[in-house]
Design a binder for these strands. Structure first.
Lengths: 333, 333
DNA sequence: CCTTCGCGTCGAAGCGCTTCGATGACCTGC
DNA sequence: GCAGGTCATCGAAGCGCTTCGACGCGAAGG
């Protein structure tokens, strides 16, 4: 069973090859009658354009690269949600997604761009001093970054507004009347790496707390139960008056609740807890956690949209910050 | 800056286009001198073959599709590890990976195959009665499945030997002298969906326990703390003599430990716990869990190898089962 | 009535690569 | 010294598609 080509369709419909092409791309007017005849033939023969040929002739592969970090300390469920939404959104624009891991590094980006395998790049988990950023500027390949490097000048970046997220948590706790609050963040290594989002959350939190005149405290937090337990214990020992706790560390969220239980603090009676995490985790915890969700889907969708706009040659804003949303559940009062 | 083509390289090296092609593919003998000259030109000009043109002419895109499920109840970290190892291994064979989500369904498979976007398919999380399987047979596109459908006849399937994994746990507990043991599995929905691996683990466990003359019990297990707590409590109430517990549910693993702690059972003094999960989770738990690891990386690597072999036209075994490995840590004695 | 225009369609020229058959140059052995 | 055989290289024919310019035709305009 030889594969069906555009020539087969043309013959079957009794038109020229170019006519079929124009029907399919809509780049020239075609009479309704002809269009219908062609479309029928396409369906009947089960025609699918050959991707390579199309890419070669049109210089558009209809594929974008998704560069995932896949390294320690990352938040897998969020990453996954994100990847899903990227794929889904890309498909809506009739594009496919090539998966790349960051360990191919800059060479990898160069390779896929130079070989015209992809039309654009989507980089996740961009760091403050990301070695890929300078290359990106050189390549002049359309790209969108998730996260912010130190100097976003001339790039297109999307992210949740983490500063606002941190602030939102502090606002919420302040509103409830708490006077002493703290934030438990990502593992130390994440800060050392200079990943922007973790720092920005802390900064937003501290700043908002200061504005409200609260006593606040923000520190990294490792992910094993024992370390979480130790950290929570230390915190409670040092700050007896502490009554509000923000957790921005998915893996640790459950452990924090466990540690509080063991340390004899009730949630929310003794300590109010607010998490920054996806909704499903917050809902599954017990008690269900008041949370600021990380809108991975929105970010993915938005990133793809921006990239598509760039592929069309449209101008797009340099930075897009997505507004966080607080959902109140059982863990805060 | 026009992009460099093979013709540019040919001119620069003073040879024919076909000679450059043969140097690069190694499909015909080329004198050492010429080869070197061509290679130098390639480097100097920074030449990267155009993927579309190559695909068109050679009928090989050097891209494989990775079809991920991305639905509820899946084990994200494992999935991620798996995806990483697939990408890495594929790159070793000079192939790239196109990411597809299962919700594109059979149409999606058909599309990428018919458009020659990819040379082969890697399907994850195959179910017993998977709607994609019949299509796969029709397509005659080289493919490898992770997991086993009801009838693997004529397909190529790879998976961890879950029956052995379950058995290994039972063996281990029997050896330690436990007489009453139980297995807490995946959420009920996973069994209802007919995902093979969960069932096979249970079967292997039960069978091995029977062989050792142990009293055994295997049940599904949800993933919220409350439900896990309830399930563990019920189990201990019903089976006071229970002293060995196997957990085959990543999300629940931590909660089981928490529940036992709350219910006043020490691990491993009162109850020995064995988990079936990736090593990092087992190590991070406290106490560190004796575990059978899910070798996601091996599975990914093996799957890609098999697919590449098929692309070369080689015959490959219908089914490949990867041997599980038990690592003894602190949670069992 | 003839020119002009726009619409719908066609033919052909590539896009950059692989691959097949052909062509020399050079060696071997009788 | 020449037929036969290698070895290295070349030229050209596609692969299946897009796109540009051209063309025929009926409608509109003078």
């Amino acid at each position: 069973m030889r594969t069906v080509t555009i020539a087969d369709v043309a013959k079957h419909a009794g038109v020229a090859v170019s006519t079929v092409s124009y029907v399919l791309s809509g780049k020239r007017a075609i009479s309704a009658a002809t269009r219908q005849r062609v479309l029928d033939s396409v369906r009947e023969l089960g025609y699918h354009p050959n991707a390579g040929a199309r890419a070669l002739a049109s210089k558009r592969a209809k594929v974008i690269a998704l560069v995932l970090p896949l390294r320690a300390g990352m938040n897998l469920p969020v990453l996954m949600q994100f990847a899903t939404s990227v794929v889904t959104t890309a498909r809506q624009y009739d594009h496919d997604v090539l998966l790349m891991t960051a360990d191919e590094g800059a060479d990898g980006l160069h390779r896929v761009a130079a070989s015209a395998l992809v039309d654009g790049l989507l980089l996740m988990d961009v760091e403050i001093h990301d070695p890929r950023v300078p290359l990106l500027r050189k390549l002049a390949e359309p790209s969108v970054l998730i996260g912010f490097p130190a100097d976003p000048e001339g790039l297109t970046c999307v992210d949740l507004d983490f500063a606002r997220a941190g602030a939102l948590c502090a606002d919420h706790l302040a509103e409830l009347g708490h006077r002493e609050i703290a934030l438990l963040g990502a593992p130390r290594v994440v800060y050392e790496r200079g990943t922007g989002f973790a720092e920005r959350t802390m900064a937003g939190f501290v700043e908002a707390a200061r504005r409200h005149g609260l006593q606040a405290d923000a520190r990294p937090c490792e992910e094993s139960f024992d370390e979480v337990h130790a950290a929570v214990k230390l915190l409670l020992d040092e700050r007896p008056g502490l009554s509000g706790l923000v957790v921005h560390n998915e893996a640790a969220t459950g452990h924090v609740l466990g540690a509080l239980r063991i340390l004899g603090r009730r949630v929310p009676e003794d300590v109010s807890v607010v998490a920054i995490c996806p909704d499903d985790i917050a809902e599954r915890a017990s008690p269900a956690l008041t949370s600021v969700l990380i809108p991975a889907e929105d970010v993915g969708r938005q990133a793809v949209r921006l990239l598509m706009a760039k592929l069309e040659g449209q101008a797009v804003p340099e930075s897009t910050l997505l507004e966080p949303r607080l959902t109140i559940r059982e863990s805060s009062r």
